[in-house]
Amino acid sequence: MATLKNGILSAPHVHQRIYAGLEKGHLPHVHALVIHQTGAPTAQHTFNSYQNSGHGAHFLIDKSGTIYQTAHLNRKTHHVGKIKSKCYETRICSKAQLQAVATILLQKGVSYSAITKNLHDAEKIKAYPDRYPLNEDSIGIEIVGNYNTQASAYESVSAVQNQSLQWLLGELFGFFKLSKADVYRHPAVSYKTATEASTATW
């Protein structure tokens, strides 16, 4: 049984490896969990990057299934990026919502990066769950998995990694009163490579 105190998840198989550089201010609410893959062959590659980069998540699940906590759960991390429109992607927009999204997406003479930023800015003012999770209200979980440039795909999440993921999600569901509906693969939420975390199961 895990405990959560001052943002630290304590359990026999959760190892603390907090990187202060990943933490970007207070995380007041946790509405959702976002599943990522590292694109690197080992946990150490990602730990090395955490020493120099401001991008990262709250947990990392190693190849062995070992869970590392890399940021406090009451601190925000930069793991999501610019979000898509949830109602547009899931095809449940009202007529007015659809028109608003289409107006942004089909802007002429504007760079694609400006379009995705404009869409993100329009989405982020909505309340969850009417939008996808943001850095400001979600916990990120990285799974170690390399990216094969020849196949243009992330490697499959292993059975032992999925087992650890499912245990971790179960604990987080309890602490933050979440359900499976609040768990997202990163490419569902943001414009990312489609195979990232596609073989994670919960």
Binding site: H36, G39, A40, S53, G81, K82, S113, P187, Y191, T193
Partner: peptide
Amino acid sequence: QKTVHDDYDVL
């Protein structure tokens, strides 16, 4: 791939 993931949109 980490740079692609962290710094770019994949459209």
